Simulated scan of single mutants.
Amino acid sequence: MELIQQLVNGLSLGSIYALIALGYTMVYGIVKLINFAHGDVFMVGAFVGFYSITILELPFLPALLISMIVCAIFGVLIERIAYKPLRNATRIAALITAIGVSLLIEYGMIYIRGAQPEAYPNDVMPTSKIDILGVSISSQSLLIFFVAIVLMIILQFVVHKTKIGKAMRAVSFDADAARLMGINVNNTISATFAIGSALAGAAGVIFGIYYIKIEPLMGIIPGLKAFVAAVLGGIGIIPGAMVGGLLLGVIEALVSAAGFSLWRDGVAFVVLILILIFRPQGLFGKNKREKV
C-alpha cells in the first residue's frame, strides 16, 4: 500500500518534470537548441502564480492561466532578443547564450525582489485525503496530476490538429522546405517558444502549490531534471518528454521510499548517464544516419 502512495507521489512530481521537459523537447525539435533558460521560465511562472494568488487574491485556475500567459510572452521575448539573432550561428554560441540568459533571469529576479524565499498559501487548493482501495492519497496530488495530463492532451491536440501545429511539424522536419511552402518560420518558432514557456509557467504554479517554498534559484534542479526527462524519452519527441518526465518522477519516489532520499537528486543524473551509454537516442527515438 505504501508503494501505491509513492507511485502517486512520483506521478505528481513526474507530471511537473514532464511539463517542463515538453518545452525543452519542442524547442529542440524545431531549432535544435537546448534552451537552458527554460528552467528559469518555470521559476518566473511560480512567482507570477504566487503574486496572482497573494496580491490579486485569485483562485488557483485564474492564477494558473495568468502565469501561462505571462510566461508565453516572456518565452517569445527571450527567443526574439537572445536566440533569433543567433539562428545561423554555431551550436556552441547558441548554447552559451542560453546559459547566459538563464543566469540573467535568475540574478535579475534576485536584483528585483531579493533572494528570500516565499511560501505559497496553504488554502489555495484544499487538501483532503481520498481512500482508494485502502490507500489514503492526497487530493492535491491527484489534482496536480490531472491538471498536468489535461495540459498535455491539449498540447497533443494543438500539435496534431491545428494550423500552427502543422506548421511546427513542417518546420521541425525541414525549415527551408517549410519556408518555400509559404510557412512563416519565425512566427512558428516564436509560437513554439510561447507554448513551451506557457507549460513551464503552469508547472511553476503546480510546483509552488505542491512544495510550498519558491525562490529565485528554484529553476536550476527541476530544469536539469526535466532536461534528463527529455533525453530519457528522446529529445525532440513530444510523447517521449511526457513519458520520460513521469518515469523520472516515479524513479525518484521509489528511491526515496527505499530509504535513499539523499540520493534522490543524484538518481536523475545516473539515469542520464545510463541512457546516454545504452540508448542515446532515448526510449522513443530512432537511430539516424548522419553523413560525415
Score class of each variant (00 low, 15 high):
248 L>S: 06
181 M>F: 14
196 G>N: 08
197 S>N: 05
123 D>C: 02
180 L>N: 06
2 E>I: 14
70 V>C: 03
195 I>V: 14
38 H>F: 08
61 L>Q: 00
139 S>P: 06
180 L>H: 10
156 Q>M: 06
191 A>S: 15
208 G>F: 12
284 F>L: 15
12 S>W: 00
230 A>N: 05
245 G>V: 06
114 G>M: 14
266 G>W: 08
221 I>K: 09
123 D>L: 04
246 L>I: 13
56 L>H: 02
291 K>F: 15
166 K>M: 13
161 K>C: 03
121 P>W: 11
171 V>L: 11
255 V>R: 10
14 G>H: 01
77 L>H: 06
158 V>F: 10
239 P>L: 05
114 G>Q: 13
225 K>H: 10
174 D>H: 10
96 I>M: 14
123 D>I: 05
242 M>Q: 05
76 V>S: 01
34 I>M: 13
32 K>Y: 13
196 G>Q: 07
101 V>D: 01
100 G>Q: 10
194 A>E: 07
144 I>T: 00
124 V>M: 06
290 E>C: 08
92 I>K: 02
141 S>T: 04
14 G>D: 00
201 G>R: 06
219 G>A: 09
251 I>W: 07
123 D>E: 09
34 I>L: 15
252 E>Q: 09
150 V>R: 02
76 V>A: 04
279 R>A: 00
105 I>C: 13
253 A>Y: 08
136 S>M: 11
41 V>M: 12
283 L>V: 15
27 V>T: 15
186 N>Q: 13
70 V>G: 00
224 L>P: 04
64 L>I: 09
279 R>P: 01
119 A>P: 00
281 Q>S: 09
254 L>W: 10
197 S>Y: 11
259 G>R: 07
249 G>E: 03
56 L>Y: 08
262 L>P: 01
20 I>Q: 03
246 L>A: 07
58 L>R: 03
22 L>P: 03
180 L>Q: 12
262 L>C: 00
128 S>N: 09
215 E>Q: 09
220 I>Y: 06
268 A>P: 01
283 L>T: 07
86 L>Q: 11
219 G>F: 13
178 A>P: 08
234 G>R: 06
278 F>D: 01
82 A>F: 11
122 N>W: 11
111 Y>A: 15
45 G>T: 00
219 G>H: 10
139 S>Q: 05
2 E>K: 10
92 I>R: 03
91 R>W: 14
214 I>N: 00
257 A>R: 09
97 T>S: 12
231 V>F: 09
190 S>M: 13
175 A>V: 02
79 E>G: 01
20 I>D: 08
118 E>Y: 15
207 F>G: 00
255 V>F: 03
226 A>C: 04
185 V>W: 14
182 G>T: 12
106 E>I: 15
104 L>D: 05
245 G>H: 12
156 Q>D: 08
